[in-house]
Write a protein that binds this DNA or RNA. Structure first.
Lengths: 96, 96
DNA sequence: AGCTGGTTTATCTTTCTCGGTAAAATAGTG
DNA sequence: CACTATTTTACCGAGAAAGATAAACCAGCT
């Protein structure tokens, strides 16, 4: 029960990342050189197995010449739509 | 020459984070309870001193009921606007 | 001044990222 | 089938994130 917010997030960002890289016909090694991030690390991120740091995502986004938010795109969880926590539900009111 | 992409990124996200939290009149401790992230950790993130992981930002965004991209908002670097790297310029062509 | 609430800083431990390297998979091609 | 390119997985070591806690600041207020 380590609690992973949404296992989709990482996989989602990874998917998007891979798509963007494919668009520019870059291999992991090429992107690795561009970003300074090793190809294995990039692979883990793209496959949603690694929880990258913000600056790491920023480096990748910069190399791909897209804004960082392009990686998160329309991940409009907004929490009120009820995407997660069916039984969790923080309530705000409970803490105020 | 470890090169920190843009020292602004973290400070920027932190600033945005703090604004969102203020909007809901939440203290660091309250947000800490909501997110499961300790108040000191939140403080470091908000002051731009910590390079948070993606899921960490996602937890905070969820607690604040905003999409994750709201934290990165209009950080449209896009590299063509020329916000950063005056002397960096990876060239893509060099690696292809 | 003393207090109180909020934020920051510091220290410590655990966990994880990240680069490096090397070894397996997984294509794709002759 | 062999050969090559690309990706994935596995291990290692260094560094950093994140939780906990405690202490230091910094308001505001009686």
């Amino acid at each position: 029960m380590t609690m992973e917010i949404e296992p989709n997030l990482l996989a989602d960002v990874g998917r998007r990342l891979r798509a963007l890289r494919a668009d520019q016909d870059l291999t992991l090694e090429q992107l690795a050189r561009l970003t300074g991030i090793s190809a294995p690390a990039l692979s883990l991120i793209e496959t949603g197995k690694r929880d990258a740091r913000l600056t790491t995502l920023a480096k990748i986004a910069a190399a791909l010449r897209v804004p960082v938010m392009a990686l998160l795109a329309d991940h409009a969880d907004d929490a009120s739509t009820g995407d997660d926590a069916p039984a969790e539900g923080y309530d705000l009111g409970d803490y105020l």
